[in-house]
Write a protein that binds this DNA or RNA. Structure first.
Lengths: 196, 196
DNA sequence: CACCTTTTCTATCGATCGCTATAAAATTGG
DNA sequence: CCAATTTTATAGCGATCGATAGAAAAGGTG
């Protein structure tokens, strides 16, 4: 046997509900998405939401974690799979426009704009750390390439990593502004030209 | 004589109050800045605020206009003063890090992040149009340079203009995340290298 | 002085915010 | 069947949201 499962069984699919919450936070951000919006979108009552996910902040944090591996993980995958930092950047820039303009999904990136207009310093700090960690990951791979002689020794790894994520965030915001995928493809191609 | 000035005179400086409102919106965005925050920061009562500025949305719109010429106008000035599009981009990238990290002023850019997490489609549309108009201005100057033979004919003016503003917006967001001016200077220098 | 106009302060308004107390409904274990 | 346990729906908590009514205060104008 698996679990006792005593008591009245849950009437909704927790994973499916979490995915709906992710998309709602993705589209509207943490602060603007109200608990009422969530209960209506998820089709459950407020007590069920609080029982299954804690409070609004815990639900958002869990949504962030699942989002990062389900929708935003293409950056980490490119860094892990590609042999060089530049090829990782090229792949990220090539994939980002499609990722940020998918049909039936919100435009842009939850990690980029999820804390927009938030009073909670805890949420803002957490998302800032997530964004910074991507810069760190790029900078580390750039340092490896410099040490191996694949990149010039006079470049600033942190600045180049920060540039790559800043350009990517700019593309994500442009996607939120309704810029088409075709235009974003051309923008991303230009952005890659800044790499040495 | 100038005006009749009948009735009880206003007890506060309207321009100074507007500047305080600009900085508050700049720091917190439209939605997160409450009317109570505004009345406390401006040192006036709610009825005085509504009498002097209309409602919250009208105050924000007026703040946007004044911000654009007082703090954000360096982009339009670079486009107007510099002879070529690339030199305008170079000047914008050179000035942006200092603009976005000024002491005693909020980090980043009001036009970039002011509508973050806003339910009002009217506000979001207005800011989107302001952002798009900067892309249009860059694209127009790029087209002029192409026609004059100062830029290759095979480049996409709109995409290059969009890239420039996307990179700039990414830098503004990095500034909001607390990235130092020194690092942003190096990021902006890299961003310019994408230009042909 | 009285009168008119405008701004000020005080005290709210209805709506919505995140969240929860309470009790009925639905399941398992005995 | 009867407890025990968990989730459900209903209703509402205090706080805050943007915005305003009403009266007092402060000026010019006669």
């Amino acid at each position: 046997m698996v679990t006792a499962a005593r008591g009245r069984p849950r009437s909704f699919d927790r994973d499916a509900a979490l995915d709906k919450a992710i998309r709602l936070f993705w589209r509207r951000g943490y602060e603007t998405t109200s608990v009422r919006d969530l209960t209506e979108e998820l089709g459950i009552g407020a007590p069920s939401l609080y029982s299954a996910f804690g409070d609004k902040q815990q639900l958002f944090m869990e949504a962030l974690r699942v989002y990062d591996e389900r929708y935003g993980g293409f950056i980490d995958r490119a860094l892990a799979d590609e042999p060089t930092a530049k090829r990782a950047a090229a792949r990220v820039f090539a994939e980002a426009p499609e990722r940020y303009t998918r049909c039936n999904l919100p435009a842009g990136c939850l990690i980029v704009s999820g804390d927009a207009g938030t009073t909670s310093t805890e949420i803002a700090e957490h998302l800032r750390r997530m964004r910074d960690s991507k810069v760190d990951a790029f900078a580390a791979k750039i340092r490896t390439d410099i040490a191996a002689g694949r990149l010039p020794a006079d470049i600033d790894p942190r600045a180049l990593g920060r540039y790559t994520m800043a350009a990517l965030n700019g593309i994500a915001q442009a996607a939120r502004d309704g810029v088409t995928r075709a235009e974003l493809d051309r923008v991303a191609e230009i952005a890659l030209h800044a790499w040495p």
